[in-house]
Simulated scan of single mutants.
Amino acid sequence: MTVRAHKSLAGVSVHPGGQHAIGRALPDEVPVALVFDGTTQAVMMASPDRIADFAHGFALSEGLIGGLDEVEGFEVIHHDRGIEARFWLASDRGAALKQRRRAMLGPVGCGLCGIDSLDAAMRDLPRLPDTGLHLTAHEVATATDALCAHQPLHDRTRATHAAGFLQPGMGITCAREDVGRHNALDKLIGALARQGTDPSTGAFVLTSRVSIDLVQKTVIAGAPVLIAVSAPTALAADTADSAGLTLAAFARGGGFDIFAHAHRIIDGA
């Protein structure tokens, strides 16, 4: 089923010189229920496209599943008022689902909404190994510019985020968009998992600031480098350093700042 993630709506543009009728493409958002073995674990507001990628990426990055081999069945059901992404699991994941339980509604801009304990919010992360991955300073400095070519929804609406996968010498090889920055990253993680691409072979590139949950999702996915167009929070930078994640921010205008593990970026950075 092909789903459009935007709608054209009429409006009035008002300026000091007068006003005139306009038509604009606006991004759409719908509630998406993540349902596991008949039980709804979360409802997140998201763009209505690439729902399979979003659901699998969310499940992986939040620890609801440990791998796609734990999924016995999956389907997307469209309702008048939203979308259900239904999983059937091959093994009992009850303990993991309770540990990462979320509230029944996650606003579009929210990353940790509904986490029911401080321990759940500040979950322990594995330390990323050094796999020999290196990016040139030029690749990092131009990463967010390169991602622009993979944002058709943003080109239409000017109101969405994107997450891209940058591989050395190959550029952006996969990208996903959403009204929510966390959703865009989950869609990317899900897309890579479903196409069999190892996240450890490249870097995640984001069109947003970097909060703690985006660092957590990146580390859980196994990507060793995170590149963002805007700033990280101090907690996000500290967490990246502890987890062995290379964190490059303010990647725009031909430059960038490195806040953790610069050894993966070569050419004098």
Rank of each mutant, 00 (worst) to 15 (best):
M1R: 14
V3G: 10
L9S: 14
S13K: 15
H15Q: 15
G17E: 13
T40W: 03
M44D: 14
M44Y: 14
M45A: 14
M45W: 11
P48G: 05
H56I: 12
G57P: 00
A59K: 02
A59Q: 01
S61E: 11
E70V: 00
G73F: 09
V76C: 07
H79P: 11
D80P: 14
R81E: 15
R81G: 12
I83T: 12
E84L: 09
A85K: 00
R93Y: 01
A96R: 10
R102A: 01
L105P: 14
G106F: 10
G106S: 15
P107C: 01
S117M: 01
L118Q: 14
A121M: 14
M122S: 11
D124L: 08
P126D: 07
L133C: 06
H134T: 14
L135N: 00
A141F: 05
A141N: 03
D145F: 02
A146G: 08
Q151A: 10
H154M: 09
H161V: 05
G164T: 07
L166H: 06
Q167R: 15
G169Q: 09
C174R: 15
A175S: 07
G190W: 00
P199C: 04
F204L: 03
V205T: 00
R209F: 11
V210W: 09
I212F: 13
D213H: 13
V219G: 00
V219W: 02
A223H: 03
A223D: 07
V225F: 05
L226A: 04
T233A: 00
A234Q: 15
D238L: 08
A243G: 00
L245W: 01
L245T: 05
L247Q: 02
A251C: 07
G254H: 05
F256A: 03
A260S: 10
H261A: 06
A262E: 12
H263P: 02
D267N: 11
